[in-house]
């Protein structure tokens, strides 16, 4: 994608950006004596690509875990579509279309790529255990329907050749892609990506960027991602949150954040002008 096209698509995307989808309000999270997050507030708007950056141990992954209800913050809350959640729960998050991938891949190693992605459709299946035992009626119909949907994702992410391979045997880059596929199978409204490009080479990173942008543009999926590669972050994200030692350091469009003296001091190092 050339620079001009990229800017154009960025402009187009801005038009898609809508209301606040999810807001974190004054989140405080402690593990014993360690303050992982302190008074962090920011919002994620519908249709945007939101990056969360910060040095190691800044609380980025903890923030994602709070968003999908895996950690319960001691202070503050999550507001989902204008509704203030007393406690966010993983099951509620999943049902409402919050999907995520993990920093260290969390695939189901003993299952094939296809089965892994099919687990993403789990919440949309209604067949009872008895129907599944005889593979008849609703169980069969659902299975075929969701298989067809999953095949579209497999095509989209260009992984048909590994459909029947147990994921434990796949190389790292492909595992990351299967994990993205599993998250996409949930047809998420909000996709949380925890370092989707960690440990990838340039080519794999470019592929992954392309997938993220495509998902965002074609399906209108809101994306919140943690990433260390500044080039990637500055290129694809609409707004950036910077965390440092659990505090919010800066929040704004990439160009603005890049120039923020606090951020430069804490994260990007000494200015190279």
């Amino acid at each position: 994608m050339s620079g001009v096209q990229q800017r154009e698509s960025a402009v187009q995307r801005k038009r898609h950006i809508g209301d606040v989808l999810l807001a974190a309000e004054n989140i405080g999270l402690r593990f014993g004596g360690v303050q992982a997050l302190a008074g962090v507030s920011f919002d994620i708007r519908e249709g945007e690509i939101r990056a969360i950056i910060g040095p190691n141990g800044a609380g980025k992954s903890s923030m994602l875990n709070v968003i999908n209800g895996f950690y319960q913050p001691q202070e503050g809350h999550i507001v989902w579509r204008g509704q203030r959640m007393r406690r966010m729960r993983p099951h509620f998050a999943a049902r409402n279309g919050i999907a995520r991938t993990f920093q260290n891949i969390a695939l189901f190693k003993g299952m094939t790529t296809l089965d892994n992605i099919m687990t993403g459709r789990m919440l949309k299946m209604r067949a009872t255990m008895l129907e599944q035992a005889v593979f008849w009626g609703r169980a069969r119909r659902e299975e075929l329907e969701h298989r067809a949907f999953v095949e579209r994702i497999i095509d989209f992410l260009e992984i048909p050749h590994i459909r029947n391979v147990p994921v434990g045997k796949l190389p790292y880059g492909l595992q990351k892609r299967v994990e993205l596929a599993r998250a996409l199978a949930m047809e998420p409204t909000l996709l949380l990506l925890d370092e989707p490009m960690a440990g990838m080479n340039l080519e794999e990173k470019e592929d992954m960027c392309r997938y993220i942008l495509d998902v965002n543009e074609e399906f209108g999926t809101t994306v919140a991602l943690i990433e260390h590669d500044m080039g990637v972050v500055m290129d694809i994200s609409d707004r950036v949150v910077v965390l440092d030692y659990g505090r919010l350091l800066a929040d704004g469009p990439p160009e603005e954040v890049r120039r923020d003296p606090e951020v430069i001091k804490a994260y990007l190092g000494v200015s190279q002008d």
Binding site: N68, F70, P90, H91, A93, A94, R95, A99, R100, F102, A106, L107, F108, K109, G110, M111, D115, M118, T119, G120, M122, L123, M125, A127, M129, Q132, A133, F135, A139, E142, E143, R182, M186
Partner: peptide
């Protein structure tokens, strides 16, 4: 059962219970 939804749920819990929970 093992090749359909319920079986996948079982195997998901076996292989990585945290990820299974996040999926719903």
């Amino acid at each position: 059962m093992t090749r359909l939804k319920i079986g996948r749920a079982w195997m998901a819990i076996r292989d990585m219970d945290i990820a299974a929970e996040i999926i719903g």
